[in-house]
Write a protein that binds this DNA or RNA. Sequence first.
RNA 1: GCGCCCGUAGCUCAGCUGGAUAGAGCAUCUGUCUUCGGAACAGAGGGUCGGCGGUUCGAAUCCGUCCGGGCGUACCA
Length: 557
Amino acid sequence: MEEMQKALERVIRNVFGTDVKVELSRPDAQFGDYATNAALQLAGRLKRNPREVAGELAAKLSEELGDRVREVSIAGPGFVNITLSDSVLIGQALAATASKPQNYKGQVVVTEYSDPNPFKVLHAGHLYTSVVGFAISNLVEAAGGEIHRVNFGGDVGLHVGKTMWAILKELGGEHPEKLADIPEGQRAEWMAKCYVAGTNAYEDDEPAKAEIVELNKRVYQLFASNDHDSPFAQIYWTCREWSYDYFNAFYARIGTPFEKYYPESEVADLGLKTVREQLEKGVFKDSDGAVVFEGEPYGLHTRVFINSHNIPTYEAKDVGLIMHKWQDYHFKKSVIITGNEQEQYMAVVLKAVEQFAPEMAAATSHLTHGIVKLKGGVKMSSRKGNILRAVDVLDVAHQANKKATGRDDEQAVLGAVKYAFLKNRIGADILYDPEESVSLEGNSGPYLQYAHARARSILTKAEGAERNIADLDEAERQLARKIGEYPEVLQKAVNELLPHHICTYLYELAQEFNRFYEKSKVIGDPRQATRLKLVELYASTLKDGLNLLGISAPDKM
RNA sequence: GCGCCCGUAGCUCAGCUGGAUAGAGCAUCUGUCUUCGGAACAGAGGGUCGGCGGUUCGAAUCCGUCCGGGCGUACCA
């Protein structure tokens, strides 16, 4: 690919004496293996007939590439189509999983996503962002990056006050010893219930609301006085630990582990201190007793970083978080992945940071995604407890899987959910259809997992037999061509940090294989060695792609 | 009001650094098939790419405008 591109650029420079932004694309199979519209661009610039320019370009290119191409032709308004020689095509297929992008070679990259709050439940959005963030991290890692996956969450704040209020009610007062009565397996559930109860009380019950506000302050006080021993402190710290246990267990289950948590309480101080310092230097301004950053000069809006009670808002905490990450990792690049609703908020935070730490701001990018909607209902409304939890999504997928296959396969369910999330371009809201996701037909995770298992099964059956490619028949050629495209797809996915490109490709690859397999017998055929090798390359490519997505590729299902 | 995002077949989505007849899956209909795991393959119908204007040899893709939906818009995140 790269070689072709260079050759093309060279020819254009030599023949036409000008540089053109050359694009090689993968056209419809009928047109060849690569196509370029360079002649169309040149024609405009040179004020010449496009097809004439294309003809000249094709002739020279054919000469330049020699036996590496089978044919260089012109078509349509002036496209130059290139058909590779079989040996080049075979070379590409053989190198499919070996050649990886180099965008992040040797660079330290920190990715942050998921960001659940302790004392609250993991909802569908956390599942989505975890899956997406993990896949994006994998892309960076595949491109040579030294990746660090981190997580951020609010271990202080009003939601903690609400949960603590209900916990104290449940325990009948500040009795940490009674926590032992909650069975280990039910801790997360119990805390989730407490949060809902606390939220309802906060909204409906005035005296309770006052108590919750007071408890919130007491939680902050725990940190100020470094209190781990008082009964209240013991309850808080124990329950906070339960939350992290619950998070870790869930991430382990779905296979998206984190290296580090940054609890809000640990970054707030540095954020506060920094904002205060930069207030002195004029980056921030005093306004009605609060400390704000005025975004208007940059086309953004003004936001409060420290409120009038001298409490850092999330803005200041995010400042602290960025600085902590910088201290901990000295990252070359930092990627933050959150919901769309935080896009403009984050733009203000980064613009503020840019004023006093431009190197950190420049290295940080913010990717946003939409929300998950479940097809056929379950509203994600309010905080009343009727939200779509992360486990609910997995549960409905399990049910659908059982209904469709009669079995209960966690790997297939995870593959189904992850693939359903990842196949959409990141940005817009997605609609999750459990029935479709676990489907064994069509564009789904289990379909690809099965496709892999099936190919492995063929290889197992012919274990020990020779695998070797020397030439290709037409059906084999189509498959080889598709396999050879993989590095280009990966490059694109890495460039744009968009995993869905891999999904699209893998599905096309599996379809191409099925087409090949339909008419080409593998075992026992005179061309067995060639075909076995192709099956092997196909299975490896499929597996490589699925693994990048964070989806398992079992040998048997 | 202002800002950001979104609007492509009945449904769910690709395609968007402008290019060759707008592609998949599901659903509907028709074929293939005594299966190297058929969880398959081949084919048909179905689209004013939200509307209108503009730039261009060429626009789903870029620009403007309008309509529709979502989010944000100072002490929540």
